[in-house]
Nucleic acid binder design. Structure first.
Lengths: 199, 199
DNA sequence: TCAAAGAATGAATCGGTGTTCACTACTTGC
DNA sequence: GCAAGTAGTGAACACCGATTCATTCTTTGA
């Protein structure tokens, strides 16, 4: 034997992998998924196109990871905001506001993560996270039902509808045109009413 | 001169054009936009691939027309249902129910028209119809504000959110999985509450 | 220093579709 | 029937980006 992958090499490999994912993330956030060719990602990460394939089996796998990590960050942020103590109505408002403000801060990324056309393999990842979003809001509805703060309803349907309302009201319009922050309180009120939370 | 397009020829041309659009519509309704190649459409319409280009300048133009006609039919149906006399709450319920039942009847088509990834040129058409949907619901909200049946709100934001809620709650889930008709009354209640319509 | 093995490269390949166009078939008016 | 002009055809082309792989560059342990 004459070669063995040392810790130093492994570190460099890891760093390169992270640089590739990071570059892909940045490109998506700036230009969207469309127009994110492997060559472009490789260039941004300062590696050769072929090198990308030493870390990911194909394009779908790379962008699935990008979507996974990016969306998880959003879900975590909203979950944290909604987990703080308070009435269900208050927690709901905080969740919507957190989602909205973050989307307004990175509109292109938000559009890419939620609505932009993507490859089937990436779409599968998105589907999984749609479920995560729905679960998050369904949990809030469950809490409201248990405490009697919310009127009878199917938490899954209500949660899916609420997620759709947020996406359409915020993300899709942002795609074409500029941010309109006044939408946030309107949307919060809409969601709060929709689930039957008094205030 | 030795050739002039007679009425008979024009009729045949028109018929062929309609056959192409109709074939494209059927293919979208069955398999979605993805996998609707020009060759497939031509085959279904029983013309050569090149013949499609005697009626449409490119693929985008063909499918833009498919989307336009299909969506207009849906908008018209919902508009008619919501135009019947009654309280705003009643008209709203009828609108949601009409939308929902039609979507459940043709889930693949509904998904294609509302959520499926499409070409930019077709996306532009969709964007225009998103506005049509929003206008329709915004009009209902306007009526409710005027009559005092609905509480103060931005009709545009509420309408966009309501449209998003319908799309997400119905169309997107339908894409993967089977129809669940019990969703309709849940969704109706959700929308009614969200706009602040008492019942 | 050297051989062995892995890592990195990027030009070439490949596959899939939209589009074209040289050609055939048909229609028309004389 | 015939010439002029149009409609219809479908194989060939063009394009584009993902993927491959023969080659070069690095690292390793002796």
């Amino acid at each position: 034997m004459a070669y063995r992958r040392t810790a130093a090499v492994q570190e460099r490999l890891d760093a390169t992998r992270i640089r590739i994912v990071s570059a892909a993330h940045d490109l998506v956030a700036e230009h969207g998924y469309a127009g994110c060719s492997i060559a472009l990602v490789a260039g941004a990460a300062e590696v050769a196109t072929g090198s990308v394939y030493r870390h990911f089996p194909d394009k779908g796998a790379l962008f699935a990871e990008v979507f996974r990590t990016s969306t998880q960050r959003e879900v975590d942020a909203v979950a944290a905001a909604s987990a703080l103590p308070g009435t269900v109505a208050q927690r709901l408002s905080r969740a919507v506001e957190t989602f909205a403000h973050r989307a307004l801060a990175s509109p292109r990324l938000a559009y890419a993560l939620i609505a932009e056309p993507v490859d089937p393999r990436v779409e599968a990842e998105r589907l999984a996270y749609r479920a995560a979003w729905t679960d998050l809001f369904a949990g809030l509805v469950d809490d409201g039902l248990a405490s009697g703060e919310l009127p009878g309803q199917d938490p899954r349907v209500s949660a899916a509808a609420a997620v759709g309302a947020m996406a359409q009201a915020l993300v899709v319009p942002l795609h074409h045109g500029s941010a309109e922050p006044h939408v946030v309180p309107e949307l919060t009120a809409f969601i709060t009413r929709s689930l039957g939370a008094s205030s």
